[in-house]
Computed example of a mutant assay.
Amino acid sequence: MKIILKIIKWIGKVLGGFIFLMLLSGLCFRLFSSKPVPPGKLVDVNGVSLHIRAEGQKNDLPTLILESGAAGDTDVFHWIAEGLKKNMRVVRYDREGKWFSESSNDSITPDFYALQLHQLLEESGEKPPYILAGHSMGGPYNRIFRDLYPNEIKGMVFLDSSHPEQIERLALTDSQKKQDVQKYMSILADMGILGLVDQIFGSLINVNNDLPKDCQTRYRTLYLNSGKVLRRMVKEYNFVDDTLLKTVGQVSDLDSLPVLVFTAAEEYSGFRKEKYKRQGIDPDKELQLWFELQKELKELSKNGKQFFIDANHGSIITKKENAEIINKEILLMAKSIN
Rank of each mutant, 00 (worst) to 15 (best):
R95C: 07
R232C: 15
L121R: 02
L31M: 13
Q250A: 09
I187Y: 13
K302R: 06
S336T: 11
A189C: 14
W10D: 09
T263N: 00
K86W: 04
F307T: 00
P140D: 03
W10M: 09
S315P: 06
L172E: 15
E267F: 14
K154M: 07
G138V: 03
K285M: 10
G314Q: 11
A264L: 00
R218N: 10
L287I: 01
L66S: 05
R278M: 15
D75R: 13
C215I: 07
K178G: 15
R220A: 12
N303E: 01
N105Q: 13
S101P: 06
T263Y: 05
G97C: 11
Y237R: 15
L21Y: 10
S33W: 11
A54R: 01
R89A: 01
D255F: 04
N238Q: 14
M156Y: 04
R278W: 11
N87T: 02
Y141K: 12
K41Y: 02
K9P: 06
T318M: 11
L260V: 01
P62F: 03
N87G: 01
I316K: 04
L24F: 15
L42Y: 02
L297N: 05
G138C: 06
N225Y: 14
S25A: 15
D160E: 06
K285T: 11
K335P: 07
Q57D: 07
L289I: 15
P164W: 00
I7H: 05
G270E: 02
K6N: 04
Q57P: 07
V261F: 05
M191G: 09
N105C: 09
S33D: 10
H163T: 02
I330T: 04
L332T: 11
E286A: 02
N312I: 03
S104M: 10
K85L: 04
K13R: 12
W290L: 11
M233D: 14
Y276H: 08
L23T: 10
K295L: 07
V240M: 12
A81T: 14
F100N: 02
C28P: 08
P38R: 08
E123W: 12
G139F: 08
K277I: 14
E274K: 15
V197C: 13
N322H: 08
A114C: 08
K275N: 15
E67A: 05
K58Y: 03
R169D: 09
A81L: 11
I4C: 07
P164D: 04
R278I: 14
K127D: 01
E266M: 04
E67S: 08
R143Y: 08
S269T: 08
Y113C: 06
I153A: 03
Q279T: 06
K127M: 05
G69I: 00
Y113A: 09
E67H: 08
D210R: 06
Q216R: 09
E122D: 11
V14M: 10
K305E: 05
S49D: 13
F29N: 10
K41S: 00
L66I: 12
G227V: 06
G26T: 08
P38V: 00
V76W: 07
L170P: 07
E236P: 02
G83D: 03
N225H: 12
L61I: 00
T173C: 12
N87P: 00
W10K: 10
